[in-house]
Amino acid sequence: MNEEKHILTMLVDNQPGVLSRVVGLFSGRGYNIESLCVAPTIDPLVSRITLVTKANLPSIEQIEKQLRKLVNVIKLRDLSGKEAVHREMALICVMAKPESRAEILRIVDIFRCKVVDIGREHYIIEVSGSTDKLNALINLLKPMGIKKIARTGAVALFREPN
């Protein structure tokens, strides 16, 4: 059966060990995690975990049930569909030799991202957007030489009904 990407978002108790329960469930049962993003919500007692996984239909059903079974998981939703807003952010440290600086800045401009740090031989670029956009930007920057990269992994929110 085909594996598809799923963006799961869950509200969990903001307590030590809760992330470990979630992650342990994935490793223990042989599911994979593509990316993971955790931070407290407006309620300091509650955190939001956004997790991207690849799974076929029976597996994702099982993953969701297993997650819901965790006592500290308050709410879980699959946000893979169009009803949700997805974003990812990255910091990309790219080699910026004098001859490629103009090209990098043009790309930055086209992708509506920004340069947040400049050194003698590098730029650090901050970019946010869909995972596809980030991948496209990274591909274009690759020829200049990417020194380091830090991606947050996807975050997502369900669109409120109008």
């Binding site: 030590p16 060990g17 470990s20 329960r21 342990g24 223990g28 006592v71």
Partner: peptide
């Protein structure tokens, strides 16, 4: 940590 995957739930 050790018993997280083999308990229904656990507490410190």
């Amino acid at each position: 940590g050790i018993t997280r995957p083999c308990t229904k739930h656990n507490y410190l």
